[in-house]
Structure formats: structure tokens, C-alpha cells
Write a protein that binds this DNA or RNA. Structure first.
Length: 948
RNA sequence: GCUCAAGUGGCGGAAUUGGUAGACGCGUUGGAUUCAAAAUCCAAUUUCUUCGGAAGUGUGGGUUCGAUUCCCACCUUGAGUACCA
């Protein structure tokens, strides 16, 4: 008896033992280590690497990793040399804020968190090549982030050649011919100088000018300052006018900061989207963010001044409809051109708008406000005077901060004109503008517009630009919404800049002296003077003799200089990490060796969240283009194909407290009770929405002596689908799922939930379905007396099931439709079970099909079938159509398109014979009930439809 | 406001080129096994029905022999974005 029990025990599916065994095997044998030398074609599968937070992983996090792991394993079966690495984006705000609260060094908390992540990831059985792991906060790694920063500093962007080039080439142009004829990306307000003037300038003055051309530059710019976080933020880090992290207010402030001249790459970033396989939604988001608009720049002379106002317009064809101009309140000219009479009103208005935060201005788009400056501009063609107003509907940060207002053609201008009783000339032939502006470009001819009369939009635009060029008062122009990205952060836990200052001018530290390591500080807060945390470091100065970081008191501004106090933003390290993984060994040499870069090229499949659309995914593309231009990498785009996995949501559990009491009423009995909804830990609720009252009583003290009003002896909870979060008590930990059901169950269930890209709720109850499937799978191979797989010839049905499954699974994986292959496996195992299949010729290939999804059980059964190698080395089974050929077809017979019954007929039956057989059938006669059919449609092999 | 995506049983979802709507799983119901429970197995499960059938994929139209699938309008939900000149 005892012996039988033990024997029986051994024959059961013990997932915990099996999974631990194979995880150990993979680690010890380095099963998934990728080689940079292989005859196989390469394939690079990458996940967006995680920020290791203190909370660890919940079941929502691994979704994308499971999908990419399935794909990576599939590609290995298909004969590819697969690179599938993982690492950590380990610089960031949470570790720093924790450090501020506790004094604990962020490096220590980061280390601890990484250990937790690694344990959690390992238990899910991913096929990562951990030998290539990267951590952005490691000096070995950020050495090269600093190095790339230097490359950006040493580059300018040539618009003629459309690429970044060495800044020294620009310097030699300046010294030989000045800057009058260069066509390069630069600041807007550049002074024109000759070679003589340039050569006569001091080195410091030259450096100052060069900063206006470099691809990373130091400049006083208006930045988004977040007082609560004590740092500046990039545009993509602000959502609805508040900080993405924490939701704090953000104000505009002028500060000297490092910026990245990403605007130089606007057109290439836009064009590149057509060459990559990303979702349309994501491409559209990036297109909107880049915000290309084609139009013209027009210059207006200000009457009585030497000044000119440049505007950008997408509608130069409407130039004769201009009846006023509007400047942003922050526009430089405002103070200069305002007349004495209007001075008080203008200043009051500016003061009022300055107080309003960006968010208020955005929220309140309906209130029309503005004030007349008293000044007039001259219309370029009619020479009529045009009143110049200021108004906060014009943004200083877009275009030139000034618009030519055409009230008949733009609703905002129209509203403004109506509000202030400004004239609204109509330049559209036969269009009524008494109620609203006419903003369309189509089906209209221009009128009251001198030489543009009678033309359509296209023609008039061309002509207007031509005439403006003749006057020297305008030209065709393309404008981009994309702004340069602020690159300084006033934080501790980020990459230090490889920069020191001589007389206030930034100097790069030579690459061979990198990395410049983060200094120690006693507190992680800004200094009393408001300097960033690095301002607290005592050893933070650069000695140009020894080329080392030395104590601050050695600063003499002759040989020892102060170092930069800002650090780099979170996206610095993540903009190039995919290249670092390519390098196997000797990583100190270069950021990635030439051979490795040549072999792996770029990421074939990238999986991660859609929230990075305008941040990481844009910046990474920008840096890759720069590295390509400067000859360091061979590719123009980092990620060939990209998939955004949807979020897994939680299913919160709700109990109902009768208001003012300690009584809790079951969901079905709420009736007329006044109740409050209270969320409780979902892990106490079973598949039937019944809560474990004993567990609840122990969970929190207020429930220990509470009274529960039950229905049918049970307490039923309400359910709500919402984001998985500690505060809703709906977080499910993968550790619990793995120990209770196993990693293979977790992997299958995450895929089974629904389409990868879709948002979908997690409900632990459903996991018994896939877990039951794995048990059935096990039983198909292992009976009470051990493995019951034989060398018997497979039956026709066995082969049909197998090949149907091969076809479907292969198609599913290639379409990233992982949820449906899980169903397919279930169907296959159900069928083979019914067929009592024991044939190795069928059961072994089936394991290979399942192994990407449930690798542990597949490895175990594969080895029990007698293989000594890992199943990951097995070749994907070949699909053979011949096993699916049928001799009969069960035809659906429909009447007016509605299926009424089915009829089994031979596959090779002719169209006429099918029709005859069907029409003679008793059910057809009954359906027709004496009516004469008007038409009979027969599609052989598909359907019969009788109309009438 | 604009752009995009999506609406299918009690629930997650399937139907890949227009051709048997609801695969697969959860839950529910009934049964077998068990002293009992767990586990396992079997059956049923869109709705209505006079048990012959009939209706049915957000709503209303259209194209078609035939529409969850294509077209038009509308409703709802979600995401992104916004005085962008």
C-alpha cells in the first residue's frame, strides 16, 4: 500500500520540483547563452528593461516578457541564433526619494531590488541570456552613456548632407569663410560673422558661439520646473500640465540647462517611421509629437519702428484676410512697440497672464483675453496698417510666438475679433462667415485678395509665397512642434556629466578618463543655496593635471575646476542599452565592438508598454541616428518591429458595510440597506466570488468581531475591474501563483487571458483551466505505471490532430496571437486523449510545439521520452498538409443566409450533384414549404445557400 | 474639439481572405466516484419557444445569394492629443 502510494506520487505532475530542476539545468548549462559567432541567421528579441522598484513584480508585469520569451524560444526551434537579454534601468527617482527619507544609499536599495526582481524573473523560467545583463547605474555602463554625451557635444547637424558631423569641420568653415552660408541646425538668434571676426574672437567667445550649434548644448532656456520634485522636466514627463510622477504642479522658469538638439532630426525621425514595423497608433503618436506643418514665414514691418515681426502660417493664401496680429504676452517686441497710452493696460495684462500656470491656461480655453499694444504693422501687399494685439491664446513656445490673424479663416482669430470688435474681412468667395470662421481648404475660391482672386488653396498658396519672396518678406517654411529636450536633472541618482567648467564655459573630459563616478554625499537633497544634490559633494572637482576627480578645496580655476552639478535624465541610459547587450565579453574596450554591432545590427522584435511613445522610443531613435551619422553603428533605426502589450488590470473585491454599523451584508442582499463599499484583499475570494470570512477576520482587526449577513450561508463580494494597485488590495503576486500552480500555469494563463495588445482583467479563479490542462497533458504521457508512450505507428486521426495543431500554433506565434494557441493545445490534448494516442511520433513533436509556452513540463516529458538534450535544441515540427485532406465535407445548408441544417457530402462531388442532392433532401423540402427557390448558391467545399 | 482603437453569452474571449456565430476556458446546473471533502470524470449551459422552430454580434440604414467581418450615420467606452497659427 505504502509502496503503491509512493509509486503513484512519483507519476504525478509535481510542477514545483520539475520547474526548479529545469531552471537549475538551464542556468548550469547556459542553455540560452547567445553566441556572436554562428552560422545560423540572427534574431534579436528584446523587452523594455524594467526599473527595479521596491514593490517587486505583480502578475501584470511579466505579460510582455512571457510573450517575448515564447517568441524567442520559437525562433530557436526555427533555427535562429537568438539574442534574448535582460537588464535593469536602475537609475531613477523612487530610489532617490527613498534615500532622502531613510538616508540609505540608492545603490544599496537598487541592489536589493534587483535581487528580488532576478529571483522573481527566474522562477517564471525565462530564456534570458543573463551573461549580457546591463544595469544603467553601473559605472561600467554609464561610462559609455557619458561617452555618447561627448559625441553629441562634438557634433553639429548639417542640413545639406542631412547628417551630424564633427564640430571641428564647422570650426574650420568658420575660420575660413564665417557662418553666412552654412546651412546647419542651430539656435534661432545667431549673429552673422565673417571669417575675420571669428578668428579675432577670444576662445571663450568662440566656445559660446559653438554652443549654439552643438547637438547637446548649454543654454538659458525656458524650462518646466517642478518645485515639489525640485527638478526640471522634459515635455514628455508632463501630463495635463502636471508632473507625470506624483502629479505636482509645473511652472515655466528660465534656467541654464543642457539640452539635446533633437529638433535637428525632426524630419528624419518622421521619415524613419515609414521604414519600421510599428503599430499605426504608435507611429501616429510620434507623428503628432513631431508635429510637422508646412506653410510660410511672413515678415511684417512695424510702423514707426525698425523692428519686424516674423510669423509662421499654414495659410499664406489667406494673407489678404489679415485684420490684426497677435503676439504672445512673452514676445520680446511687446515692451518695445507698446505705445505710451497702452503701456499700463499691456503691463497689467502681462502680469496677469504670468501668474496663470500653464495648466490654468490650458484648462481655460474659452475665456478670450488680450489687449491692444497701440502699435500697427504694415500689410506686406496692401500696405494697410494692421493693429498689433497681445493675447495668451498665442503660445510663446510654438512657431515665432506671433500670428497673423485671419478671422474669417481661423476660429480662434474669429472669436478674438468678435470679442474685441475687430473687423472680419471675408476673402472666401460665396461663403457665409456671419456665424463662424471657414477653416476648410477645400472647394473654395479666394476673393477680395488682389492677385490671388479666383484661385484655389493650392494655387494661391504657391503664388502668395512667390510674391512674398519677391518682396523679400517671406518664404515657404516647414515648422515642427518637436522641441529640443532638456537634458539636465537636479538629482543625485543619475549619470554625472563628464563636464567641468572653465570661466563658466563647459569642457568635456577626455573619453579615456571615463567613467566619472557619482560622488558620495551625506544627504540626497538640494543644497541650502538651491544647487542640485551634487553640490553637497566634497570631492567633486576636476584636476586637469592628474585627470582625476579631486577635493573641492583644490579648485583654483587654473588647473583644478568645478564639475557639473546636474545629472542626466532617466532616458539617457535607456537610449542605447540595446547595443550594449550585443557585446559578449571584453566590454571595457568600446561601447560595443564593431563585429558585434555588425552581426546583431538592431532589435528585430521589441516588446514593451505604449507609455514610452514620446519619450524613450523617440530619444532612442534620435541617439541611434546620431551614432550612425558619426560612424559608430550601422543602423538607422533601433527597433524594427515593436509591439505594445496591454496592461493587466486587477479585479477588486468589494464588501458592503451597513452604514454606521459593524455589519457587512452579502452582495445579493444589499436591497434597501444604505451601504458603503469597502475593498478587501482579492486573495481571500474564491472563483465563485465567495469570500473566506475566517481569512477576512484575521486580515484586519476591524473584521474580527464584525457581523456578516450571509446569503445561502455564503458572503458574496462585488467586483470591480481597475488598475492593479496596493490601495485597491487587488495585487496578485506571481510568487504565489508559481508556488500554487507553477510557472508553466502562470505563463499559459497570462497568454490565455486575451490578445497581447489588449487591456484585460486578471482573475486568479480562471487559472484552474490552464492548470487542469497541464495535468491532462502530463497524464497523456505518464500513466500510473510510468511513461506510456510507445513506438506504435500513429493513426490517421493522431496525425490529423498533430498537423492541425502545428499549422495553427505556427500561424498564431507569427501573428502574436498567443491566446488562441493555448486553446489549440487544449483541443489537441483533449482529442489525443480521446483517441488514446500513445505514439511517440505524435507526442514528441507536440511537446516541441508546447515548449515555448510551457517550457518546464515540456523539458521534463521530453527527457522522460528519452532525449538527453534540452528541448530548446529541437527543430520545430514540419507541417504536412496531406494529413488534413478530407474526403467528406459537412456542408452547412442555409436558407436566405441562415444555416438550418448540415449535410455530409463527398468533397469531390460536383456543383450540380450537390445542388441536386440538397434540393431532393427532405429537410430542404420542409424548409421551402412548397415555395419555389429563386436561386441556389453552391460554393463547393464551403456552403450551400438557397434563396427564396 | 481632433485622432485612433474597441463594443459578441453571467465572465475572459474565438470566428486570420465576407461562407455553420459563441471555439477554448472560467462560472453555473445536474450526475458519477467518495463515509465526507479535495481531486477526477460525464452531461448541459446565447435567448425565446406551442419543442416544429424562431430571433440574435451597441443602434439605425446600405451593399451582397450570404455581413461579427465591407460602406454610411449615430450611441457608448477606452487611449492619445490639443488655443500648434
Amino acid at each position: 500500500m505504502r509502496f503503491n502510494f509512493r509509486k503513484n506520487f512519483k507519476m504525478q505532475y509535481h510542477f514545483n520540483d520539475i520547474e526548479a530542476k529545469w531552471q537549475k539545468y538551464w542556468a548550469e548549462n547556459e542553455t540560452f547563452k547567445a553566441s556572436n559567432n554562428s552560422d545560423k541567421p540572427k534574431y534579436y528579441v528584446l523587452d523594455m528593461f524594467p526599473y527595479p522598484s521596491g514593490a517587486g513584480l505583480h502578475v501584470g508585469h511579466p505579460l510582455g516578457y512571457i510573450a517575448s520569451d515564447i517568441y524567442a524560444r520559437y525562433k530557436r526551434h526555427k533555427g535562429f541564433n537568438v539574442l534574448h537579454p535582460q537588464g535593469y534601468d536602475s537609475f531613477g527617482l523612487p530610489a532617490e526619494q527613498y534615500a532622502i527619507q531613510t538616508g540609505q544609499h540608492p545603490a544599496i536599495t537598487t541592489e536589493t531590488n534587483i535581487a528580488t526582481y532576478r529571483r522573481q524573473l527566474d522562477q517564471i523560467g525565462f530564456s534570458f541570456d543573463w551573461s549580457r545583463e546591463v544595469r544603467t547605474s553601473n559605472p561600467d555602463y554609464y561610462k559609455w552613456t557619458q561617452w555618447i554625451f561627448i559625441q553629441l557635444f562634438e557634433s553639429y547637424y548639417c542640413n545639406n548632407e542631412n547628417k551630424a558631423k564633427d564640430i571641428n569641420e564647422l570650426v574650420s568653415i568658420f575660420s575660413s569663410e564665417g557662418n553666412a552660408n552654412v546651412n546647419v541646425a542651430c539656435d534661432d538668434d545667431i549673429e552673422i560673422f565673417s571669417a575675420e571676426t571669428w578668428n579675432a574672437k577670444s576662445s571663450e567667445a568662440q566656445q559660446k558661439i559653438l554652443l549654439q550649434y552643438r547637438l547637446t548644448y548649454l543654454a538659458e532656456t525656458e524650462v518646466n520646473w517642478c518645485p515639489a520634485l525640485g527638478t526640471v522636466l522634459a515635455n514628455d514627463e508632463i501630463v495635463n500640465g502636471v508632473s507625470e510622477r506624483g502629479g505636482h504642479t509645473v511652472v515655466r522658469k528660465k534656467m541654464t540647462q543642457w539640452s539635446m538638439r533633437i529638433s535637428a532630426y525632426a524630419e528624419r525621425l518622421l521619415q524613419g517611421l515609414d521604414t519600421i514595423d510599428w503599430t499605426d497608433a504608435l507611429k501616429e503618436t510620434q507623428r503628432n509629437w513631431i508635429g510637422k506643418s508646412v506653410g510660410a514665414s511672413v515678415t511684417f514691418h512695424v510702423n514707426g519702428h525698425d523692428d519686424r515681426i516674423d510669423v509662421f502660417t499654414t495659410r499664406p493664401d489667406t494673407i489678404f484676410g489679415v485684420s490684426f496680429m497677435t503676439l504672445a504676452p512673452e514676445h520680446d517686441l511687446v515692451s518695445k512697440i507698446t505705445t505710451v497710452e497702452q503701456k499700463a493696460a499691456v503691463e497689467a495684462y502681462i502680469e496677469k497672464t504670468a501668474k496663470r500656470s500653464e495648466r490654468d491656461r490650458m484648462a481655460d480655453v474659452k475665456t478670450i483675453s488680450g489687449v491692444f499694444t497701440g502699435a500697427y504693422a504694415e500689410h506686406p501687399f496692401s500696405k494697410e496698417p494692421i493693429p498689433i494685439w497681445i493675447g495668451d491664446y498665442v503660445l510663446a513656445s510654438y512657431g515665432t510666438g506671433a500670428v497673423m490673424a485671419v478671422p474669417c479663416g481661423d476660429q480662434r482669430d474669429y472669436d478674438f475679433a468678435k470679442h474685441f470688435n475687430i473687423e472680419i474681412p471675408n476673402i472666401f468667395d460665396g461663403i457665409d462667415i456671419s456665424e463662424e470662421a471657414f477653416a476648410s481648404k477645400d472647394n473654395v475660391k479666394i476673393a477680395n485678395s488682389d492677385f490671388l482672386n479666383g484661385m484655389n488653396y493650392k494655387k494661391a498658396t504657391k503664388r502668395a509665397i512667390y510674391e512674398l519672396e519677391q518682396l523679400g518678406q517671406g518664404e515657404g517654411k516647414t515648422n515642427y512642434r518637436l522641441r529640443d529636450a532638456v537634458f539636465s536633472r537636479q538629482r543625485y541618482w543619475g549619470e554625472p556629466f563628464p563636464v567641468y567648467y572653465v570661466n563658466g564655459m563647459p569642457q568635456m573630459i577626455e573619453a579615456k578618463h571615463l567613467p566619472i563616478q557619482l560622488p558620495e554625499v551625506e544627504k540626497y537633497l538640494p543644497t541650502e543655496e538651491g544647487e542640485p544634490p551634487l553640490g553637497r559633494a566634497d570631492v567633486w572637482a576636476w584636476d586637469t593635471n592628474t585627470n582625476t576627480v579631486v577635493a573641492n578645496d583644490k579648485v583654483n580655476n587654473e588647473t583644478v575646476f568645478p564639475l557639473e552639478l546636474n545629472t542626466m535624465p532617466g532616458w539617457a541610459g535607456s537610449s542605447w542599452y540595446f547595443f550594449r547587450y550585443m557585446e559578449e565579453a571584453n566590454r571595457d574596450g568600446v561601447f560595443a565592438s564593431e563585429d558585434a554591432l555588425k552581426y546583431w545590427e538592431n532589435v528585430d522584435l521589441y516588446i514593451g508598454g505604449a507609455e514610452h511613445a514620446t519619450g524613450h522610443l523617440l530619444y532612442a531613435r534620435f541617439w541611434v541616428k546620431l551614432l550612425k551619422d558619426r560612424g559608430f553603428v550601422n543602423v538607422e533605426e533601433p527597433f524594427k518591429k515593436l509591439i505594445n502589450q496591454g496592461m493587466i488590470l486587477g479585479t477588486s473585491a468589494i464588501i458592503y458595510r451597513v452604514s454606521g454599523t459593524e455589519k457587512y451584508v452579502s452582495k445579493g442582499l444589499i436591497g434597501d440597506y444604505g451601504v458603503e463599499e469597502i475593498r478587501v484583499d482579492v486573495n481571500m475570494v474564491n472563483a465563485s466570488d465567495e469570500i473566506d470570512i475566517e481569512a477576512l477576520k484575521k486580515w484586519q482587526p476591524q473584521y474580527a468581531n464584525a457581523e456578516f449577513i450571509l446569503e445561502d450561508g455564503k458572503y458574496m463580494v462585488g467586483r470591480e475591474v481597475e488598475k492593479m494597485s496596493k490601495r485597491w488590495f487587488n495585487v496578485v503576486n506571481p510568487d504565489d501563483i508559481c508556488s500554487q500552480y507553477g510557472a508553466d500555469s502562470l505563463r499559459l494563463y497570462e497568454m490565455f487571458l486575451g490578445p497581447l495588445e489588449q487591456y484585460k482583467p486578471w482573475n486568479t479563479a480562471g487559472i484552474t483551466g490552464v492548470h487542469g490542462f497541464l495535468k491532462k497533458l502530463w497524464k497523456l504521457y505518464v500513466g500510473e505505471n510510468g511513461v506510456n508512450v510507445t513506438d506504435v505507428e500513429p493513426t490517421k486521426d493522431n496525425l490529423k490532430t498533430l498537423h492541425k495543431t502545428i499549422k495553427k500554433v505556427q500561424e498564431d506565434i507569427e501573428n502574436f496571437s498567443f491566446n488562441t494557441s493555448v486553446s489549440t493545445f487544449m483541443i489537441a490534448v483533449n482529442e489525443l486523449g480521446k483517441q488514446k494516442c500513445t505514439s511517440k511520433a505524435v507526442l514528441e513533436p507536440l511537446l516541441i510545439l508546447i515548449s515555448p509556452y510551457a517550457p518546464h513540463i515540456a523539458e521534463e516529458l521530453y527527457s522522460q521520452l528519452g532525449s538527453s538534450e534540452s528541448i530548446s535544441t529541437a527543430v520545430f515540427p514540419k507541417f504536412d498538409e496531406s494529413h488534413l485532406v478530407e474526403s467528406n465535407k459537412n456542408y452547412p445548408i442555409s436558407f436566405n443566409g441562415k444555416m438550418r441544417f448540415t449535410l455530409e457530402l463527398p468533397m469531390d462531388m460536383s456543383k450540380d450533384d450537390i445542388e441536386k442532392t440538397v434540393m431532393a433532401h427532405e429537410k430542404t423540402i420542409a424548409q421551402l414549404d412548397g415555395r419555389e427557390p429563386k436561386k441556389v448558391i453552391v460554393v463547393p467545399g464551403k456552403i450551400v445557400n438557397i434563396v427564396g
